[in-house]
Amino acid sequence: MSIRSCVIGLGSMGKNHVRVASEIPGSTLVAGSDPSEKNRAALGRYGIELFEDYRVMLDKVKPDIATLAVPTELHKEVACDVMARGIHVMVEKPIAKTLAEADAMIETAARYKVKLMVGHLERFNPAVQEIRRRVLEGELGRIFQLHARRLSPFPARIQDVGVILDLATHDIDAMHFITGSKVVRAFAEVAQKAHKSCEDMLSGLLRFESGEIGVLDVTWLSPWKLRELSVVGEGGMYVADYLSQDLRWYKNGAVNYTWEPATHFSGAVEGDMIKTYIPKKEPLRVEHEAFVKCVLENTAAAVTGEDGRAALSVALDLMQAGRESSLITH
């Protein structure tokens, strides 16, 4: 069985979605839409039908699934319009601009009995998935801290959101994924240096319900591109490079690996460093495969609307904390 797919929004990210969606087993990419003639013309080589208006496309082509890569402020309107036609939706992160919009999207998916998946890409990064597997197996013991560093030059094309909604949501969701816990406190310092209307630098602190501390260093003001996540716990520290998908495991030399309950933790000393081999996969491809699979098998989406809402809620808390210089608690 093959399902028919389409992409709505053919800008920078939309082009990547078209490239990947055209190659996913179990799915046939049949159409794309974008108001920009330039964006449409750039995708003529894929041999799909291209439309200016996504509504015309949906009514004519009648796809089974749709990937949305439109500006964040349009997510709720377009997603609800698509789902009301009985079409399953994968929407780029963040799920929406407000919690009310996210709630409307989740409610619409439930009402029309369709899947709503949110494109939190790092969940599909092999290095992040390996960290989660090892954490679940107990190799690290209790987690103490998760520290994300996401640095890059300013992308002039992004005008509708700041660095928190556009970038930090990646790491917030990755931290939710690894800890399986929710954020109960958030504090942030932010700055706006190059962006015309939003913050472009974040130093954020999170406290998770299960006790872990999350640290977020996210900026568009660096000439150097870095994407890194470290996770520190009783057994040592994992360091994942999001870009290369390399994973390093720094063992705590003070831990006996035949080891006994966590109550015996007495500190950390330098131990072995092991670079773990992980088969490389393009996270966007894994994400599309997961979306198609959940539709074909009628299972829960890998990243649900509720997951997307949780990441958005923390991001909005950080934005409020940065504006007000206040600690946000739940």
Rank of each mutant, 00 (worst) to 15 (best):
V190Y: 05
A191E: 15
Q192A: 03
A194M: 09
A194S: 11
H195C: 01
S197W: 09
S197F: 02
E199F: 12
M201W: 06
S203Y: 14
L205D: 04
L206H: 13
L206M: 13
L206E: 14
R207T: 07
R207L: 07
R207F: 00
F208P: 03
E209L: 06
E209G: 00
E212S: 04
E212G: 02
I213G: 01
I213M: 09
G214E: 09
V215R: 10
L216W: 11
V218A: 04
W220E: 07
L221E: 04
S222D: 15
P223K: 06
P223C: 03
P223N: 06
P223A: 06
W224F: 12
K225R: 14
E228P: 01
V231T: 11
V232A: 09
G233S: 10
G235P: 02
G235C: 08
G236N: 10
Y238F: 12
A240G: 09
A240L: 11
D241P: 07
D241M: 10
L243N: 11
S244A: 14
S244I: 08
Q245V: 06
R248S: 05
R248H: 04
R248G: 00
R248Q: 06
R248A: 04
W249M: 01
Y250Q: 10
K251P: 01
N252M: 05
G253W: 14
A254E: 15
V255P: 05
N256T: 02
N256C: 00
Y257A: 00
Y257K: 13
T258E: 15
W259T: 02
W259G: 09
P261T: 09
P261L: 10
A262W: 12
T263G: 08
T263Q: 13
H264N: 07
H264R: 11
F265N: 10
S266H: 14
S266A: 14
S266G: 14
G267N: 13
A268Y: 07
E270R: 08
G271A: 12
I274H: 04
T276I: 12
K280Y: 14
K281V: 09
K281S: 15
K281G: 07
P283N: 10
L284M: 12
L284H: 04
L284V: 01
R285I: 00
V286H: 07
V286P: 00
V286L: 14
H288S: 06
E289K: 05
A290Y: 04
A290H: 08
A290P: 01
C294Y: 03
L296P: 00
L296I: 00
L296E: 09
N298V: 03
T299V: 06
A301C: 12
A302W: 06
T304C: 07
G305P: 09
E306V: 01
E306N: 04
E306L: 07
E306K: 08
D307W: 06
A310P: 01
A310I: 02
L312T: 00
S313D: 15
V314K: 00
A315C: 07
A315H: 08
L316P: 04
M319K: 11
A321K: 06
A321V: 07
G322T: 03
G322N: 09
E324W: 11
E324Y: 06
